[in-house]
Computed example of a mutant assay.
Amino acid sequence: MFHSHTLKAAVVAAVVATPVAADVSLTGSGASFPFPLYTAWFKDMAGSTGVKVNYQSKGSGAGISDLINGVVDFAASDAAMSDEEIAQVKGGVILAPMTAGEIVIAYNLDGADELKLPRDVYADIFLTKIDKWNDPRIAAANPGVDLPDEDITVVVRSDSSGTTYNFSGHMAAISPEFAEKVGHGKQVEWPTASNLVQAPKNDGVTATIKQTPGAIGYIEYGYAKLTKTPAALLENKAGNFVAPGAEGGAAALAQADFDSHMRSFNYDPEGEQTYPITTFTWLLFYASGQDAEKVAALKEMVNYGLTTGQTMSDAMGYVPLPEVVVQKVRAEMDKIQ
């Protein structure tokens, strides 16, 4: 006969062994790139799991700083973390790619429903060397498009940004001049030019493009999709013009080669139909030092993102993770103490 006190002891033991994540509040900050998707995840997750997440979209650089300073439970970054940044976190860091997206070159140009930009052309636009929409080099790639004699306003990020990190990485890979003059990083040395303006976060750049006739700028595809802002077809390494979308993004992700911290950057991927500026975006966790209940909630959050969360990605302009990456993330999360 199974006595009630035996049953009670078994239940207590089970609870002690497996911390309950429900009704735990988590605080995170960082990348604006995945913010629309994470917002949808966290809202749905609060109802289905009881885990409440307060996530502030501050930019990747600010998120990494918050994690290093110990003021958040987790952070998010499209630039992952450098070895130097990781070394500043006592007890170590676990990096988990949670979704992926494409950086698009969005524009505001009446009458141009489709715009093709060759690699050398969009590099020179962001170097402010091409400053008119009817420039012969833009016109040559877009026969039949009525390009106006209008100034190009280049819109870039003003804050420390993972979107800038990945965009400048691609630009430096395709343009030696960009690499030399502007550089590659979360913040770079943009040209001092009257037609170049800066705005904070992905939503700030998107709003500036929308409000400025003749503007062009780089934003995450989800923001372009959400706000119905046109995005150019970009010439890839194979010489084909490719529109952003799940197919071209998945082709780029398939080439991922992760290091020991689950970092992978491919700034100029191969492939006929590969979209040329595709990146993972990471959640960043303390490897040790948090209480069991919080760790359980963080793992619950990641599990949600790897399952239900991935089914939301495509419709919102993000690229679902390949299954092989999902399994790698699960293995990384098991390392958190």
Rank of each mutant, 00 (worst) to 15 (best):
residue 1 M to D: 14
residue 2 F to S: 12
residue 7 L to K: 15
residue 9 A to D: 13
residue 11 V to T: 08
residue 18 T to R: 14
residue 19 P to E: 06
residue 21 A to Y: 09
residue 23 D to M: 11
residue 24 V to E: 11
residue 26 L to S: 08
residue 27 T to D: 12
residue 29 S to C: 12
residue 32 S to I: 00
residue 39 T to V: 02
residue 42 F to E: 10
residue 47 G to E: 04
residue 53 V to P: 07
residue 56 Q to Y: 13
residue 64 I to H: 14
residue 65 S to T: 13
residue 67 L to Y: 01
residue 68 I to G: 04
residue 71 V to C: 09
residue 73 D to N: 15
residue 75 A to V: 00
residue 75 A to F: 09
residue 78 D to C: 12
residue 82 S to I: 01
residue 82 S to D: 02
residue 86 I to W: 08
residue 90 K to W: 05
residue 92 G to I: 02
residue 93 V to Q: 12
residue 101 G to F: 08
residue 103 I to F: 14
residue 109 L to T: 02
residue 111 G to M: 07
residue 116 K to S: 08
residue 117 L to D: 02
residue 119 R to D: 03
residue 119 R to I: 08
residue 119 R to G: 14
residue 123 A to K: 06
residue 123 A to S: 15
residue 124 D to P: 01
residue 135 D to W: 10
residue 136 P to L: 02
residue 140 A to G: 05
residue 143 P to L: 08
residue 144 G to Y: 07
residue 145 V to K: 06
residue 147 L to M: 06
residue 147 L to T: 05
residue 147 L to I: 05
residue 152 I to P: 14
residue 153 T to I: 08
residue 154 V to D: 02
residue 154 V to T: 07
residue 155 V to C: 04
residue 156 V to Y: 06
residue 157 R to Y: 13
residue 165 Y to D: 12
residue 167 F to N: 03
residue 168 S to P: 04
residue 170 H to G: 11
residue 172 A to I: 03
residue 172 A to L: 05
residue 175 S to P: 04
residue 179 A to C: 10
residue 183 G to H: 07
residue 186 K to R: 13
residue 187 Q to N: 07
residue 193 A to Y: 04
residue 195 N to V: 00
residue 196 L to S: 04
residue 197 V to M: 06
residue 201 K to G: 04
residue 204 G to Y: 07
residue 205 V to Y: 01
residue 207 A to D: 13
residue 211 Q to C: 00
residue 211 Q to L: 03
residue 215 A to I: 01
residue 215 A to W: 01
residue 217 G to P: 01
residue 218 Y to L: 03
residue 220 E to Y: 12
residue 228 K to L: 07
residue 229 T to W: 01
residue 229 T to Y: 01
residue 233 L to P: 01
residue 248 G to W: 05
residue 251 A to C: 11
residue 254 A to T: 09
residue 257 D to Y: 05
residue 258 F to Y: 15
residue 261 H to M: 05
residue 266 N to H: 09
residue 269 P to C: 09
residue 269 P to E: 05
residue 272 E to S: 15
residue 280 F to I: 00
residue 284 L to S: 09
residue 300 E to G: 05
residue 300 E to D: 12
residue 301 M to T: 14
residue 306 L to S: 06
residue 308 T to W: 00
residue 311 T to D: 11
residue 313 S to G: 09
residue 315 A to W: 00
residue 316 M to A: 06
residue 317 G to M: 11
residue 321 L to F: 12
residue 322 P to C: 12
residue 324 V to C: 00
residue 326 V to W: 00
residue 327 Q to D: 15
residue 329 V to L: 08
residue 332 E to W: 02
residue 334 D to F: 00
residue 335 K to M: 00
